[in-house]
Amino acid sequence: MVGKALETLFIKIWVIVKLNLFFWLFSCCGLVVVGVGPALKTINDLFVRHEFDYKEITLKEGWERFKQNFIRGNILFYGVILLLGLLAYNLFLSVQIQGLLFLVVDFLLVFAMIYGLVTFQYALLLDSFYEIGLKNLLKLAFISTLSNFTNLLKIAIGIAVLLFVTWKFKGLILFGTFSMMQLWSFTATKSWRETIDERLGLHA
């Protein structure tokens, strides 16, 4: 029993490490600038398709998916980067001004940044599950984020905890941070994906 539990644990750790190394490899293939978005989408695709079946998560399939994801991955990634950049700039300007009204504005801007990041995570994940156009994907991700405030909090808090742990243990940047973010989003949104499947008539 203990041996089986340890084996399962080591397999999960290996999948996390493997996917994170794939993320860095594919990011470098895109010279980082145009590689991060497709790489994130690729490790999402691989995990959604194979989960913890580590033997099926191969570099060959990853490379094929990276090429397929190149354009959409960059559109999604730089879309959220642009949004977060605009919100962060407005937050920078807002905190310079004192007053209750601007404190409320600061809170709304911070919430909008969190909301944008969670919507991006939803978009990556949902795009791996469903064949859907970009416009409809963004609509579904937006609706999904609004549908369950608890899920939004779970994803946001989970990512915040991962970033804090990464700050304490820098080695996770290479071996686990990015893949764990995607795996956490996968886990946190399971109930909502089942709801979507039911409404689409895909639930077994």
Rank of each mutant, 00 (worst) to 15 (best):
F111K: 02
D106H: 02
V118W: 05
Y115L: 10
S94T: 15
V95F: 08
L117V: 02
N90C: 10
G116I: 06
L93I: 08
L86I: 15
S94Y: 03
L86D: 03
F111H: 02
L86H: 06
N90L: 11
I97G: 03
G99Q: 03
M113D: 01
M113N: 01
G116E: 02
L101E: 08
L86P: 10
G99M: 04
V110I: 15
F102A: 07
V95H: 03
F111D: 04
N90D: 15
L93V: 08
L93D: 09
F92R: 15
L103W: 09
L109N: 00
G99A: 04
A112K: 00
T119A: 08
L87D: 10
L101H: 08
F111C: 01
D106I: 00
L117W: 12
V95D: 01
F102S: 05
Y115Q: 04
T119D: 01
L100Q: 14
V105D: 06
L101W: 13
L117H: 07
F111S: 01
Y89C: 05
L91N: 08
V105E: 07
L103T: 09
L117D: 01
L108I: 06
Y89H: 14
Q96F: 04
T119P: 06
S94D: 14
L108T: 06
Y89T: 09
G116Y: 00
L108A: 14
L103Q: 14
Q98S: 10
A88Y: 15
D106K: 08
A112C: 07
I97Y: 05
I97F: 08
Y89G: 11
G85Q: 10
F92S: 14
Y89Q: 11
F107L: 14
F92I: 09
G99H: 00
L91C: 13
L86K: 03
L117C: 06
I114C: 09
F111Q: 02
A88R: 15
L103C: 09
V118I: 10
G85S: 12
D106Q: 07
Y115F: 15
L109F: 04
L100D: 13
I97A: 06
V104K: 09
L101T: 12
V118T: 05
L91S: 05
S94F: 05
V104W: 09
A112G: 07
L103G: 04
L101V: 14
V110H: 02
L100I: 13
